[in-house]
């Protein structure tokens, strides 16, 4: 007993400090995902791209797209929604480990596609995109409120806001997990 304890003490004293500048990521096999230098997005596993992934059929109304400020306005609203949600203590944790650059783009594309503003949706389908996030209905409500804030700030009429929500609300079954 005493022998073992002493021997371990000796071994500990004899240990060398690791060399400075050790590449710990390499030592532990951590892969660092590099952001794409052009898009600034972290690459994802390949998947079949399709507008069907957007989860609903688009509106065919030039007036509705105009209410949202066209493609640019829609992209701004999507980005603002993501920013508000990332700063929202109710749901911020869900976004902590996610690529916000990519989310802003794909969310913008989805809104743009659904509103009939002439975009294609290149993101994943709703079930895959939200898999294992543990999203609750309360989280969904918080996101809806942030989207409503973003749309209100952009001056989108309330009835038009609801028309976008009308496309998104039926997707809750694919998003809410618990």
């Amino acid at each position: 007993m005493l022998l073992t304890a002493t021997a371990s003490a000796v071994l500990m004293l004899l240990q060398q400090a690791p060399a400075e500048g050790t590449d710990w990521d390499a030592e532990f096999g951590v892969e660092v995902k590099e952001r794409d230098p052009v898009t600034g997005e972290i690459p994802v596993e390949p998947y079949a791209q399709s507008n069907a992934n957007a989860g609903a059929t688009p509106y065919d109304s030039a007036g509705l797209a105009r209410d949202f400020g066209g493609r640019e306005g829609i992209a701004r609203i999507a980005a603002r929604t993501v920013d508000l949600s990332e700063a929202d203590p109710r749901i911020a944790a869900i976004f902590a480990a996610h690529d916000m650059v990519r989310l802003k783009r794909t969310l913008g594309e989805q809104f743009c596609y659904l509103l009939g503003a002439g975009c294609d949706y290149s993101g994943r389908d709703m079930r895959t995109a939200h898999a294992e996030m543990g999203v609750t209905k309360a989280d969904m409500n918080a996101l809806v409120e942030n989207l409503q804030t973003a749309m209100r700030e952009a001056g989108v009429p309330f009835a038009a806001q609801n028309r976008l929500l009308a496309k998104l609300a039926p997707m809750s079954g694919q998003v809410v997990e618990r």
Partner: peptide, 13 residues
């Protein structure tokens, strides 16, 4: 063991 300890202490790691 004590000897080993003493040596370990004497030799700067």
């Amino acid at each position: 063991c004590l000897l080993a300890l003493a040596q370990a202490a004497a030799v700067p790691v």
